[in-house]
Computed example of a mutant assay.
Amino acid sequence: MARGNSKGGSGGTSRFRFVLFEGDLQEGELAQVTQAIQNAFRGSQASSPRTIGRSSVASPPCDTDATDFDQVEEAEEVGADNIPRARPVRKARAPKVPNPVNDLDVKSEPSLKDFVADYDVKSGFEKYLVIALWLRDGRDINSFTVDHIYTCFKLIGWSTNSNDFSKPLRNLADNKFLSGDCKGYSLSLTGAGKIEDKKRNSE
């Protein structure tokens, strides 16, 4: 770029020449060079923002208060720079604590503690099953809830420190050891046979 000298004082003018490209071209090459220059100065079109819609999570038919998380999703907008503007949020919520069954008779024969003592139970699943067996055979309760199991655990002295106390019941139902759902579980033949095998031999 060449710039001429100023003429006169501060009110003078200046002359300059800006040479972008200079060279000899063969016939027919001018159109190609022109297209290349246009492409070089053409800005990339910014992609329009897109929105990832709110994801829906179906609510379970029961035990809604015992879910590990409330699935709360916020819309996520992504701009031309591909940087998320808002991320999905999972809001943690404590599971529902079961309610004690205050009118459950655990002392008359067969008492809860004596009945449980006749079985060699170690795992959590076995403890749930032996209580289900006592409820059925000892108290004629064929449909029970997590509240019954929770009450028995408390009275026996077993730990109730669990993030989801009803989860073992759902697992037992999935494996056909129980039937029903959280509105009312029943001990199945498979579940009864499983826990009856744990009965201690009488001397």
Rank of each mutant, 00 (worst) to 15 (best):
S44G: 10
S44T: 14
A46E: 04
S48K: 12
P49M: 09
I52S: 05
I52E: 10
S55V: 14
S56Y: 08
A58Q: 12
S59V: 13
P60M: 07
P61L: 04
P61K: 13
D63A: 05
A66P: 00
T67M: 03
T67N: 00
A75H: 10
E76Y: 04
E77P: 01
V78P: 00
A80V: 10
D81A: 13
D81Q: 03
I83A: 07
P84H: 13
R85H: 09
A86N: 09
A86V: 15
R90I: 14
A94V: 10
A94K: 11
A94S: 11
A94L: 08
K96Q: 10
V97Q: 05
V97R: 02
V97S: 02
P98E: 09
N99V: 14
P100A: 12
L104Y: 04
V106N: 02
V106H: 06
V106T: 14
S108A: 11
E109F: 15
P110T: 04
F115Y: 15
D120E: 14
S123Q: 09
F125V: 05
E126Q: 15
E126C: 06
E126Y: 13
E126V: 12
Y128E: 01
Y128L: 00
Y128F: 07
L129M: 11
V130F: 12
V130S: 05
A132T: 10
R136D: 13
R136P: 00
D137I: 08
G138Q: 04
R139V: 04
R139E: 08
D140H: 12
D140G: 06
D140Y: 02
I141D: 00
I141W: 03
I141R: 04
I141P: 00
S143G: 09
F144D: 05
F144Y: 10
T145K: 03
V146I: 06
H148V: 01
I149W: 04
T151D: 03
C152Y: 03
F153E: 04
K154C: 03
K154V: 12
L155P: 00
G157H: 08
G157A: 06
W158R: 02
S159T: 15
S159I: 06
T160C: 04
T160D: 05
N161C: 02
N161W: 01
